[in-house]
Design a protein around this nucleic acid. Sequence first.
RNA 1: GGCGCGUUCGUCUAGCGGCCUAGGACACCGCCCUCUCAAGGCGGAGAUCACGGGUUCGAAUCCCGUACGCGCUACCA
Length: 474
Amino acid sequence: MDNHVRVRLAPSPTGSPHVGMVRTAIYNWLFARGRGGTFIVRIEDTDRGRLVEGSVDEMLESLRWLGIEWDEGPDVGGPNAPYHQSERLGDYHRAAEMLIERGAAYRGDCPPERVEAVRKEGGGYDRKRLDARETGDSGPAVVRFAMPTEGTTVLDDLIRGEVAFENGLVDDFVILKSDGFPTYHLASVVDDRSMGISHVFRGEEWLSSVPRHLKLYEALGWAPPLFAHLPQILAPDRSKLSKRHGAVSVREYREMGYLPGAMVNFLALLGWSLDDRTEVMSVDELTRAFSLERVSRSGAMFDAKKLEWMNGHYIRQTPPGDLADALLDYWRAFPAKGIAPPPEREQVVRIVPLVRERLKTLRDAAPLIGFFFQDGVEYEAAELVQRKMDAAGTKVALSRAHDALAGLDSFDEESIESALRELAGELDLKVGQLLGSIRVATTGLKVAPPLFGTLEILGRERSLAAIIEAAGRL
RNA sequence: GGCGCGUUCGUCUAGCGGCCUAGGACACCGCCCUCUCAAGGCGGAGAUCACGGGUUCGAAUCCCGUACGCGCUACCA
């Protein structure tokens, strides 16, 4: 039973992959993986007017980046595979013809206003009146589904339970457009059937269309798949999430320095939970734990702050070597947010432990460690002078620090720390005051990685030179 | 307007009749730790469980109604 699971993600190539679409992808994927099923990506490109060049590639690239792998998709189907609906027009036309022959659909070429008008007259209207041959109207020909005017259609939704719809309230929707392309309703039903889809997980905005789909299956003589309508992802103002609310495409999050693991984990939790405490979960754990029973019914607001926290958590969990690789990859992909020229991996691996718990995103790294890779540091001389100190005192402190460090047998973190702490005592300064001056002198930053480790990595020569130069500026 | 779905701390949620004087996480506040900033530890504030009726010995949990929010109502998906 379980190995009959075949689910699909059916994106429309109309722009960048939205986080809502990605969440739907994650649920489908986790469900399939958890049950030894198949996960398919099918491109729903039936609206030629809204097609956006390159969006299929961007979509697939985003899924790949997230680690979401599909078993069948537009890149593995080969010619005539049903993965681009635009290549399967014959299927939809055949289905439409079948429906027309059975009297379940009809060709109508009168304008939409006329359809509406005839419907409003009510009382079991004769659909032939919608045909131009009868009415004398003329417009582009479309095929409409003859929706039953009586009875109730009931769906047993996997998440929401039974939902009933009055057939008479659903209009005769278009299944084949005048340009020869099918609408979503026909195309998805035909494809889900031909691809052997067992479960349809999609956004709740589709719930209202269910009676159409169920009646289509019925008229075609096909058994429908199981349905689960997922809660929506909301913007901070509870409206639908869109560009005006900030980043909505996964590409943007990638560019902002988010880790794919954090992204998947966070999105999985937007509308689903395991229990009352487990939040950080690997893909393996998610796969094992995911179940429809625990998907919530109400919409979930996209909490960027929590994503940020989770990303920081993932960064802290990442071993230094892996984090260095992630940073290098990130800088390579987005040079503007990196360090030029690209640093040596070895060097980054050494620095990473110093800043790992200070990063919320990969983007935070460059400003914090860029000085390691620059020749000189920039700062205002006044910044060297710490609280309750003056220029003269700072100058003395700096040159004494230089001497102390110069005399060290070994220029390692521990030796540096004890030397500097001792010096602070001798100068009757707070440790923070002394280190503050040295920090600015060597990094040019007021907020920087821990100083002792920083100096060790910087090395004796560079450290001493920077301190001397700073003293000279006072 | 019609139809459908939804409604527990600001946010994500736990809860599926008694364990709830409602638990966890993010955010927020305070303290501790501390070379800056973080991270971490400890503590705090924050939800009369949308509202009103029922059912029941007992309801956040079941039923009905109302309100509000969202979705659909396209030759868009």
